[in-house]
Design a protein around this nucleic acid. Structure first.
Length: 581
RNA sequence: GCACCCAUAGCUCAGCUGGAUAGAGCGUUGCCCUCCGAAGGCAAAGGUCGCACGUUCGAAUCGUGCUGGGUGCACCA
């Protein structure tokens, strides 16, 4: 139940009526008509800009439209006040009955209360993490994983058919490095001194791979040249790394639907087919790129390459797809992979990249635009760095020494729920500070705790009430006499609940899961405020001694908050707690 | 040199895709509480939304040009 959508329907229906009466001309487009909560509560419960956006096309004064619309709207029983303000805003006040019905809807619909059909079942592919399979996941990957997963849950909640996908970069040179590094660990497992040369991966995590290689191959590969073992060990080590990464993701509560392999694109003609498709559009040519102005690389030399005319689709320069030695650049399989996604019939594509890949988005969008004939939009979210702290002290990590903070380190210290929530307390394109001490703090300063605590309080109230003999099942509560909820503080609470379905749609439209976290904080804040008022004004307490009917109504309100918190945390992938420990 | 991201209260950040007098937390200041409905509460002060033009009924939001910070820039992914 989206109250804002309902009132908007009321507004447009009223506009239609005014057209029928001849007050307004025919053929008006209502697309720009919005019904929103006013910034200032003193302006009422909802505001519409209808009069202002229609003034010009209707050839009328905004006030004239607003007055006519106000009179019309005032006849609806839900509307208790309609006044024109400012340059032509129409402010509406709604009956308490409306807000009470929101509480009831939340109880009846449960965590489906904010669900939307906005996505119309469209198929969206969300590609995220896609970490190189050369080691365990580190902190840098955590945020992308959480954002991608929460976004997937959000879109599913808002009516999309979501596929979560991981692209395994197992086709490039870095997996050869992995294989060579693993080979040294294999030698080590056989009692030889490993030679971790410059450029190899020094991390301890490859020791078990060496052990496993020994278990499989014994000593048979020790004296063999690289050409004999490289492919096999590469495959073996990559698979072990992916196993580890899957485990890491599982710890975070992330489950991919599809793992796609870069390597699988080679040798199957998929890259060739994708490039051919571009070629057929006249977007592939042989040419020489200009050197970048201002900063010419020392070893730059004019070189003829096979280029993709990405500038035809919004890029700044054309991009090479084939190296001078005839092999593909890294861009070519990426094109093929995205072509593959398009061909699988997705209506929308989303990629979650690290911010250091920002220079990559235009060419990727250009490729998808070309290969889908402009049919499939690609949204690329860049996720900024996470800076780790402990009690305000920066946490250092050194990739060179192979000692980095892994995803496991983070989850083991902070827990998956806390980690996930914190990763969503910033918009994706802003760097985020993560302090191991602060995120576990039980205080108002900690948004995770604050939201969880609200939910715990709600459950505490219900536990107590059940002991007092009040049926706190949603069915029973939704049947309570909610007309009792008339106190302004209670109405305010209900208004905040009413925003939930609208917020889901806003967040989904922008692919912005962080909005859910911020909303939950506001919702919890409103709830704690109401709770605190109960300290002084006992009539606002949820449990009213000796008055089961009143208690039921007030508990219903609390439970409605709990329903929304549960739904919201569900989107974030965070488990709601019923008790603070 | 070019592209992308960021710039909002002392600090950390929201801000509904163009709406009304720009919000929250921390910090500061002042009251209150210390009752397990505990892990504090209430209130106040605090702003040239980096700067300048432009678009229009209306701009933190859109456009252009600057300033400052970050990221990236052909034969690496």
């Amino acid at each position: 139940m989206n109250l804002f959508a309902e009132i908007r329907s009321l507004v447009t229906a009223s506009l239609d009526a005014l057209v029928t009466e001849g007050v307004l001309p025919q053929g008006l487009d209502y697309a720009q008509v919005a019904v929103e909560p006013p910034r200032d509560a003193a302006h009422g419960d909802m505001a519409t800009n209808a009069a202002m956006v229609l003034a010009k096309p209707a050839g009328m004064q905004p006030r004239a439209i607003a007055d006519a619309l106000a009179a019309r709207l005032a006849t609806d029983p839900r509307v208790t006040g309609a006044e024109v303000a400012g340059p032509g805003f129409l402010n509406l006040r709604l009956s308490p009955v409306v807000w009470q019905s929101v509480v009831k809807a939340a109880l009846v619909e449960g965590t489906g209360f904010g669900k939307s059909t906005l996505g119309q079942g469209k198929r969206v592919n969300v590609e995220f993490v896609s970490a190189n399979p050369t080691g365990p996941m580190h902190v840098g990957h955590v945020r992308g994983a959480v954002v991608g997963d929460a976004l997937s849950r959000l879109l599913a909640y808002a009516g999309w058919d979501v596929t979560r996908e991981y692209y395994i970069n197992d086709g490039g040179a870095q997996v050869d490095v992995l294989a060579r590094s693993a080979f040294e660990r294999y030698r080590e497992a056989n009692g030889l001194e490993p030679e971790i040369r410059e450029g190899l991966y020094p991390g301890d995590y490859l020791i078990p791979v060496g052990e496993a290689l020994k278990a499989k191959y014994g000593t048979s590969l020790l004296d063999q040249p690289e050409s004999v073992w490289l492919a096999d060990i590469r495959e073996f080590a990559t698979e072990m790394m992916m196993e580890e990464i899957r485990g890491d993701l599982a710890q975070l509560g992330v489950k991919m639907d599809v793992y796609s392999s870069e390597k699988a694109l080679y040798g199957t003609g998929q890259i060739e087919a994708a490039i051919q498709a571009l070629r057929d559009m006249g977007l592939i040519y042989e040419g020489v790129l200009e050197p970048p102005k201002g900063k010419t690389p020392d070893d730059w030399e004019p070189r003829e390459q096979t280029l993709f005319r990405s500038t035809a689709h919004g890029d700044d320069v054309d991009r090479p797809v084939m190296k001078s030695d005839g092999s593909w650049t890294y861009f070519a399989p990426d094109i093929a992979y995205h072509y593959n996604k398009v061909q699988r019939g997705f209506d929308e594509l989303i990629d979650i990249f690290g911010a250091d890949h920002g220079g990559y988005v235009k060419r990727m969008k250009a490729a998808v635009s070309a290969l889908s004939g402009g049919r499939v939009p690609l949204d690329i979210k860049l996720v900024q760095l996470v800076k780790l702290y402990k009690n305000g002290e920066p946490f250092k990590m050194s990739k060179r020494a192979g000692t980095f903070v892994t995803l496991r380190d983070v989850v083991e210290q902070a827990g998956a729920d806390v980690t996930r929530f914190m990763m969503l307390t910033r918009k994706n394109d802003v760097t985020l500070d993560f302090d191991f001490a602060k995120v576990l703090e039980q205080s108002k300063d900690n948004p995770v705790f604050y939201v969880q605590y609200a939910n715990a309080r709600i459950n505490s109230v219900m536990r107590k009430s059940v002991e007092a003999g009040i049926d706190c099942g949603d069915a029973a509560l939704s049947g309570a006499d909610l007309g009792i909820l008339t106190h302004p503080a209670e109405i305010e609470m209900a208004k905040k609940i009413a925003e939930w379905p609208r917020l889901v749609e806003i967040a989904a439209k922008g692919n912005e899961p962080h909005r859910i976290a911020f909303y939950l904080f506001e919702l919890a804040s409103e709830f704690h405020g109401l709770w605190n008022k109960g300290n002084d004004d006992t009539s606002l307490r949820f449990v009213q001694e000796g008055n089961a009917a009143t208690s039921a109504a007030k508990i219903a309100l609390a439970r409605a908050v709990g329903v929304v918190i549960s739904a919201g945390l569900g989107i974030l992938g965070v488990t709601p707690v019923e008790e603070m420990r």
